[in-house]
């Protein structure tokens, strides 16, 4: 599978979704972090968007790898190393996978596992993983059940949104919010929110293909 022509519009859609929610994301990271998450992400996305011409020439494995290296070398911060690792790992996994539900689930899962490993974190620690892991679980069970595309995409959005919202009442045990103890409760994690926004945009864009 080498058609990566869906990437440029997808990246653009993600960029504009993040920009539309910039103030909210910034406020989330200011409340229990240091406020830079949305800036970091936008810097990374901008760099990725500049690669569009190159990305469409690549197969999806190489494209994911390229995106990962770009995020890694432009974002910085905790999220830069994590998202960078995720995409690089997805790129590696994609080498052996078809671009079907099965393949996408395997590739996405490899990405999430690399975040868990790099961040030494798991579900329930008030991080982006609280969005990413439920989506992985949803994908895995939909793959097993051979769910149809509409169901898969709608489940992604539900899992991402519920996961993101679950961070609100958590105590944080990873990331900057962990320094705040009880004071972190009541705030949604910024990385969980951006992951949810991105996954929802991806689901919406895939539904159009």
């Amino acid at each position: 599978m080498t058609d990566t022509s869906f990437l440029p519009p997808l990246i653009a859609a993600i960029q504009s979704e993040i920009i539309n929610n910039e103030a909210e994301i910034s406020a989330l990271d200011r409340a229990i972090g240091d406020g830079d998450h949305v800036t970091n992400l936008l810097r990374g996305l901008e760099a990725v968007a500049k690669l569009n011409d190159e990305l469409v020439q690549l197969d999806w494995s190489a494209a994911l790898m390229k995106i990962g290296m770009t995020l890694m070398s432009t974002m910085g911060g905790a999220s830069g190393s994590l998202l960078g690792s995720m995409f690089v790992s997805m790129g590696k996994a994609a080498k052996e996978q078809e671009l079907d539900l099965n393949g996408m689930t395997a590739v996405y899962s490899a990405g999430v596992e690399s975040i868990k490993a790099r961040g030494k974190a798991d579900i329930g620690e008030k991080t982006m993983l609280d969005t990413l892991i439920p989506v992985m679980q949803s994908l895995q069970s939909d793959t097993e059940q051979n769910a149809d595309k509409t169901t898969v995409l709608s489940n992604i959005k539900t899992a991402a949104t519920q996961g993101m919202q679950s961070t609100k009442d958590m105590l944080a045990t990873k990331g900057r919010a962990s320094f705040l103890g009880e004071r972190a409760r009541g705030h949604i994690d910024a990385g969980a929110r951006t992951s949810q926004l991105i996954l929802c945009v991806i689901a919406d864009e895939l539904s159009k293909i």
Binding site: D36, T39, M72, S73, G76, G77
Partner: peptide, 11 residues
């Protein structure tokens, strides 16, 4: 040096 309050990148 990274961006302001943002860790630098591996490269």
């Amino acid at each position: 040096p990274g961006q302001v309050f943002t860790s630098p990148t591996p490269d």
